[in-house]
Amino acid sequence: MNKKGFVFVETIIVVTVLASSLLMVYGTFTTILSSEKRRVMFDDPAYIYRTYYLENFLVSLNMDQYVSKYLSKTDTTKQKIIELDCGDISLYNVVNAEAGLNGGELKKRIFCEEALKGSNEGKLNVKHVFLTFYDISDFKSCTTKTGKISNSATCKDYSDALKNINVNMIYYIRTLTGTGQGYRIIVEYEETEIDKSNAKNPVNGDCGSNYRKDGNKCYRTITKNYFNNVRMVPRGDISE
């Protein structure tokens, strides 16, 4: 009886150790897998070229004036980060706001608005374009490992600008490096794909949420977000 009792206790100990080890391995594996899934959305080569194309267009605008108007690390009346607004007249070369746009400047505004209209609507599938300083250390210090932004007074510009942003944008920002003068554009792209392997029949002609009708079938839609950034120096090469 004593031997059987000892074997039973020994078995429980071994099972407990093995279970704990397996749980640790599983936890590590899922963390690595989640990080890898997130990483593939960062700096995808196809979107890198798209971001450089976007930056090349933005530099053709009056970015030096736009930057001077809105961005500053020291002036409390300005921000440390802004979301690009194609409708802002200061982006274009006009004598005054009342004169309006014409010719090439009007075409630039139309292209800007069409390109950045929104995910799956615009020409580039751009969801957000943020403009901030190239030295992003101040920005990163306001973020947390859990993908949040501090609510402290020094981080208010960042928390206000990114309050409705995809949490993966914060994870992406935490991977960025670089010091020195200049500015940086951070772009979030969003594309929706149809999963042909996941189909169902419509109910009263309706597919429901997250499904799209194609022919007489409803297919599940998958939304994917990608993140890229590039250094940008306005024509005036403005320094803080």
Rank of each mutant, 00 (worst) to 15 (best):
M1A: 04
K3I: 15
K4C: 13
K4W: 09
F6D: 07
V7W: 00
V9Q: 01
V15S: 11
V17N: 07
L18W: 08
A19C: 10
S20K: 05
S21H: 03
L22F: 14
M24H: 12
M24T: 11
V25M: 09
Y26N: 10
T28F: 15
F29P: 12
T31E: 09
T31R: 07
S34E: 15
S34D: 15
S35I: 04
S35D: 14
D43P: 00
L54F: 05
F57L: 06
V59T: 11
V59Y: 00
S60Q: 15
L61M: 01
N62L: 00
S68K: 14
S68F: 04
K69W: 04
L71M: 02
L71F: 08
L71W: 04
S72N: 11
D75L: 05
D75A: 08
T76P: 14
T77G: 00
K78N: 15
Q79N: 10
I81M: 15
I82R: 01
E83D: 12
I89N: 10
I89S: 13
L91T: 13
L91A: 10
L91I: 09
N96Y: 06
E98K: 09
K107V: 02
C112E: 15
E113W: 05
L116K: 03
G118D: 02
S119P: 05
S119K: 12
N120C: 13
N120L: 05
E121D: 13
G122D: 00
G122Y: 02
K123W: 13
N125C: 01
V129F: 02
L131N: 00
T132Q: 00
K140F: 07
C142P: 08
C142D: 01
T143Y: 04
T144K: 02
K145D: 08
G147T: 03
S152K: 15
T154K: 08
C155M: 01
D157H: 10
D160V: 04
N164F: 07
Y171I: 03
Y171D: 06
Y172K: 02
T175N: 09
T175F: 11
T175K: 12
T177R: 02
G178L: 02
Q181P: 01
Q181E: 13
G182Y: 09
G182H: 01
I185T: 12
T192P: 00
T192L: 04
T192N: 00
E193A: 07
I194L: 01
S197P: 05
N201L: 14
V203Y: 01
G208I: 11
G208H: 08
S209Y: 11
N210I: 12
R212S: 14
K213R: 12
K217C: 03
Y219S: 15
T223E: 05
N225W: 03
N229W: 14
V230G: 00
V230Y: 02
R231Q: 08
M232A: 13
P234T: 13
R235T: 15
I238G: 05
